[in-house]
Simulated scan of single mutants.
Amino acid sequence: MKDKVVVITGGATGIGYALAKTFGADGAKIVIAEPREHRMEEACEMLGELGVDARWTVCDVTDLESVEKLAHFTWGQHGRCDVLINNAGIGLREKRLPDTPMEDAHRIMDVNFWGVWRGCRVFGNRMKEQGSPAMIYNTGSENSFFCASTGAAYIASKHAVLGLTEMFRQQVPNYITVGLIIPGWVASELNPQFNEHVMPADDFAAIIYPQIKAGERFVVSHAYNVVRIDERMDALRAAYAKYAPRYEGDEEYDVKVLVGRLKDRGLI
């Protein structure tokens, strides 16, 4: 990562800051972005004391123009971007789904999902024009695969980030790597009262950093997650075995197979 330019949204605290330290220690030039100027100033000062080239700019990922300004700042400062970590995210104290105020649900989706969408859109286009190897990693969650928490909007937002990431990775040129970071419960400002009980952010960054450098599709950490994932997958496989078992020629209605056939016939 020597002299690579790494942009991290939500980079002043928690997972974002831990990744900024880890990339920076490996020689990367860091740009952190979020709305809180004082937190970014503090983060960049601490990164500077560690010998990291770190700069900051205000960015609200709920605003497309603000994300475009982040890209303009990055290219203006460094002339390029090699890695984008779409990490900005929020969590609110959600009530039962029917009791959750719609403005709260929309706010969570706007930051956690649409914020990632905007980052992929703006930086994806710039990286495509740049034409050199680059990476975009989106911060999902164990909640992208099962319900680890109780907030419906939060869980829905992280499930949505999984789908976005999987589709986006099929749409970019092969010199752009797209992947999903899948944290379990990591110390952050989302639930600071529990931080002494959960995985420290620096430990998490140390686990996932080699995976990012290797260009892995899924970047994982909390080993027990596979038990929860298997619970859902086992229930899904059981449903198929009972009500839609495999049969000879069952690919006849498979979407990808059908699309291929329709393309061959010039229908799409």
Score class of each variant (00 low, 15 high):
Tyr154Ala: 09
Tyr17Gln: 02
Asp230Gln: 12
Leu70Tyr: 10
Asn225Glu: 06
Asp203His: 15
Ser157Asn: 12
Ile30Asp: 05
Ile136Leu: 00
Val226His: 14
Tyr224Thr: 13
Glu94Ala: 00
Thr100Asp: 05
Leu64Glu: 08
Arg261Leu: 08
Ala239Val: 03
Gly24Tyr: 13
Ala223Gly: 02
Val31Thr: 01
His222Asp: 11
Thr22Gln: 09
Gly140Met: 07
Lys213Ile: 14
Val219Lys: 12
Arg232Ser: 04
Gly16Glu: 10
Gly10His: 02
Val178Leu: 13
Arg246Gly: 13
Glu231Ser: 15
Gly48Trp: 08
Ala71His: 13
Leu162Gln: 02
Cys59Asn: 03
Gly179Ala: 11
Trp75Tyr: 15
Met102His: 00
Met127Cys: 11
Glu49Asp: 04
Lys242Pro: 07
Ser149Met: 15
Gly260Arg: 11
Val198Tyr: 14
Val6Glu: 08
Ala12Phe: 06
Gly179Lys: 10
Gly51Ala: 06
Thr177Leu: 01
Pro101Ser: 09
Met102Glu: 11
Gly151Glu: 04
Ala105Thr: 06
Tyr175Leu: 11
Gly79Cys: 07
Val220Ile: 11
Phe146Leu: 10
Pro133Lys: 09
Ala187Trp: 03
Leu236Tyr: 13
Glu45Gln: 15
Lys263Pro: 00
Ala160Asp: 01
Leu50Ser: 14
Leu84Ile: 06
Cys120Thr: 08
Gly48His: 04
Asn143Thr: 14
Tyr243Leu: 03
Glu251Lys: 12
Asn112Cys: 11
His78Cys: 14
Asn174Tyr: 08
Val5Asn: 03
Ala160Lys: 03
Val219Glu: 09
Pro173Arg: 08
Trp117Tyr: 15
Ala28Asp: 07
Ala187Met: 05
Ile208Val: 09
Arg217Ile: 15
Thr150Glu: 10
Asp254Ser: 05
Val7Thr: 09
Val67Asn: 08
Lys95Asn: 12
Ala134Cys: 12
Tyr209Asp: 05
Ala223Ser: 14
Arg80Phe: 06
Val6Ile: 08
Met1Lys: 10
Leu190His: 00
Ala105His: 00
Glu129Lys: 14
Tyr175Pro: 04
Glu94Asn: 00
Met127Lys: 10
Ala223Asn: 08
Asn87His: 10
Phe123Thr: 01
His38Pro: 00
Val219Trp: 03
Pro133Gln: 05
Ile268Pro: 12
Ala239Phe: 08
Ile155Pro: 02
Ile136Gly: 02
Gly163Cys: 10
Gly89Asn: 05
Val116Trp: 05
Pro183Ala: 01
